[in-house]
Computed example of a mutant assay.
Amino acid sequence: MNATTTPLFRKVEKGQVLITVRGFYSQADLYNRGEELFACLKQGFVRLLSGDSTTAKGIRWKAIEGINYVEEFNGPKLVLGRPPKQLKVAGGTNAQI
């Protein structure tokens, strides 16, 4: 899949997400569709949900960096128009940078 040419998802500039797949960690590019956030993997996109879970079984997200986002009941949401200032760190706490 060539994620850079898909019209349904937009790459979030400077956005990265830390993903764990069955205990193995990797860094993935962050994409959005509206305010919803997605990680781009080899197989396609997985939506980031609340509680560090995703729409794919066995894949969890641990941190989002480089963007401003808010956590809502149905997952993290992209906040448009503001500079990055919030990071989610393991354990569910947020830190200011």
Rank of each mutant, 00 (worst) to 15 (best):
G34T: 07
G34A: 12
G34D: 13
G34W: 09
E35N: 11
E35Y: 07
E35T: 14
E36N: 05
E36L: 04
L37V: 08
L37S: 05
F38G: 08
F38L: 10
F38M: 09
F38P: 09
F38H: 10
F38R: 08
A39L: 10
A39M: 13
A39W: 03
A39F: 10
C40K: 09
C40V: 12
L41Y: 03
L41W: 03
L41T: 04
K42W: 08
K42S: 14
Q43E: 14
G44T: 09
G44K: 09
F45Q: 10
F45W: 15
F45G: 11
F45K: 11
F45S: 10
V46A: 13
V46I: 14
V46L: 05
L48G: 09
L48K: 08
L48F: 14
L48V: 07
L49A: 15
L49V: 13
L49F: 07
S50T: 03
S50V: 01
S50W: 00
G51D: 05
G51F: 01
G51E: 03
D52Y: 14
D52N: 15
D52L: 13
D52S: 15
D52W: 04
D52V: 03
D52F: 14
S53W: 00
S53E: 13
S53V: 10
S53L: 11
T54D: 08
T54K: 02
T54N: 08
T55M: 05
T55P: 05
T55Q: 06
T55H: 04
T55R: 01
A56F: 08
A56G: 06
K57G: 10
K57T: 14
K57L: 14
G58W: 11
G58D: 15
G58H: 13
G58R: 10
G58T: 13
I59M: 13
I59T: 15
I59D: 14
R60V: 11
R60S: 12
W61P: 13
W61T: 07
W61E: 12
W61G: 08
K62T: 04
K62W: 01
K62I: 02
K62A: 05
A63R: 13
A63M: 14
I64Y: 08
I64T: 09
I64Q: 06
I64M: 09
I64K: 06
I64W: 07
I64R: 02
E65F: 02
E65M: 05
G66N: 02
G66Y: 01
G66P: 00
I67S: 01
I67Y: 00
I67L: 01
I67W: 00
N68E: 13
N68V: 02
N68M: 07
N68Y: 02
N68P: 01
N68Q: 10
Y69P: 01
Y69S: 06
Y69K: 05
Y69H: 13
Y69N: 02
V70P: 02
V70G: 15
V70H: 09
E71G: 09
E71V: 03
E72R: 09
E72N: 05
F73P: 01
F73W: 05
F73S: 11
N74Y: 04
N74K: 00
N74H: 00
G75V: 07
G75P: 04
G75C: 11
P76N: 14
